[in-house]
Amino acid sequence: MTVNRRSWIKIAVVSAAAAFLSLAGLAGPAAAQEKVTVFAAASMKNALDNANKAWGKPVVVSYAASSALAKQIETGAPADIFISADLDWMKYVADKKLVKEGTQSNWLGNRIVLVAAKDNAAPVDIKPGLDLAGLLKGGKLAMGAPDSVPAGKYGKAALEKLGAWASVEKSVAGAESVRAALALVSRGEAPYGIVYATDAAADPGVAVVGTFPADTHPPIIYPIAILSESRSPDTAAYLEYLKSSQAAPFFEKEGFTVLK
């Protein structure tokens, strides 16, 4: 009897453990799906991090250049929401049927500025005839890669409009994101850089020495959308929160314009 009783106890324990592991396996993916996963342009970091804290529910954000994020979405990277720093990369994703229909909107606006290290912060009058090459004195101009990173594309357009691009094109240090370009200036590796006003405000190591007129480049628009493969049940509510008056101050504080 003792042997049989021990055997039954052993069987019961094993069965209970198996049942627990089975339930845990079922709960794991469901729990993971509760988190909203966001792919956001690198320039969103400070504002979005603060907004997410106020949201109060789990949010996982991957920050990078919009171009890199769009390519990751294209190759199947799991995400619920995409925030691009320009319309082109959102269109790239939407054209591949990777955006949930009816969820895309133009959400935020921004500006591009010329920055320098704090100890080289003399004001620069940004106007046609700008001698940016003379200001660089052989140094590098830090900016997002002009052919792919939105901030770099805006910067190139502005310099072309001002007649300064041809003289500085070979001096450009094209960074993988606007934050990477900002870091080059902050660390003293480039005397000047072109970044978003919001990024400049986030780095105490740089100073804004000039703002590019809005008519020198296409409007800077950050579109936002739910992705077609979204799995989190909180995605729609989170998107609604980001676009609400409750969240707006977090973005306005960093220098974004909330578009109506």
Rank of each mutant, 00 (worst) to 15 (best):
V178R: 07
V124N: 06
V149T: 02
K127N: 14
A157T: 10
G174K: 08
S167N: 13
E160W: 02
G155L: 12
V172K: 12
A157L: 09
M143N: 08
G152V: 04
V149P: 01
K170I: 12
S171K: 15
A175V: 07
A164M: 06
D147P: 01
S148A: 01
A173L: 15
K140C: 05
K153M: 05
S148R: 01
K156P: 06
I126K: 13
A122R: 07
P146I: 09
G155S: 12
G163F: 05
K140D: 07
V172C: 13
L130K: 07
K153Q: 05
V124D: 07
A181F: 13
Y154N: 05
S167Y: 10
V178F: 01
A180H: 11
Y154M: 07
A158S: 11
S171F: 13
A173R: 13
A175L: 11
A145L: 05
D125T: 15
K137A: 11
E176L: 04
D125S: 15
K161E: 03
A180S: 13
E160P: 01
K170E: 14
V168D: 07
L136E: 04
D125Y: 14
N120G: 05
P128V: 15
I126A: 15
V149G: 00
L136S: 03
A157Y: 04
L132P: 00
K140P: 01
W165P: 08
G129C: 14
L159C: 07
D131G: 00
W165D: 03
P128M: 15
W165T: 06
V149C: 00
A180P: 06
L135S: 08
W165H: 05
V168E: 09
K118S: 03
N120R: 12
S167C: 10
L162Y: 02
A173P: 06
G144C: 07
A133M: 00
G139P: 09
L135V: 03
A158M: 11
M143E: 08
K140F: 10
G155K: 14
G144Y: 04
A181M: 11
V149K: 02
G138M: 08
L159Y: 08
P128Q: 15
K153I: 02
L162C: 07
A157I: 07
K140I: 11
L132F: 02
G138Y: 10
L159N: 04
A133S: 01
K170L: 13
R179V: 09
D119K: 11
L162M: 10
A166G: 11
G138H: 10
K118F: 02
G163M: 10
V124Q: 05
K127S: 15
A180C: 05
A180T: 12
A166I: 14
L162H: 06
G174Q: 10
A158W: 07
K127A: 13
R179K: 07
V172I: 15
L182K: 10
A158H: 06
G152N: 03
A180Q: 12
A175F: 09
K153D: 01
M143K: 11
S177T: 02
I126S: 14
I126M: 15
L162T: 09
E169H: 14
P123D: 06
A121M: 02
A151K: 02
W165I: 08
G139F: 13
A145T: 08
A181T: 13
A142G: 12
D119P: 04
D131F: 00
I126E: 12
P150W: 00
A181D: 12
A142L: 10
L132H: 01
V149W: 03
W165Y: 08
K137C: 05
V149E: 03
A145V: 02
P146Q: 06
E160K: 12
P123N: 07
E160N: 09
G134D: 00
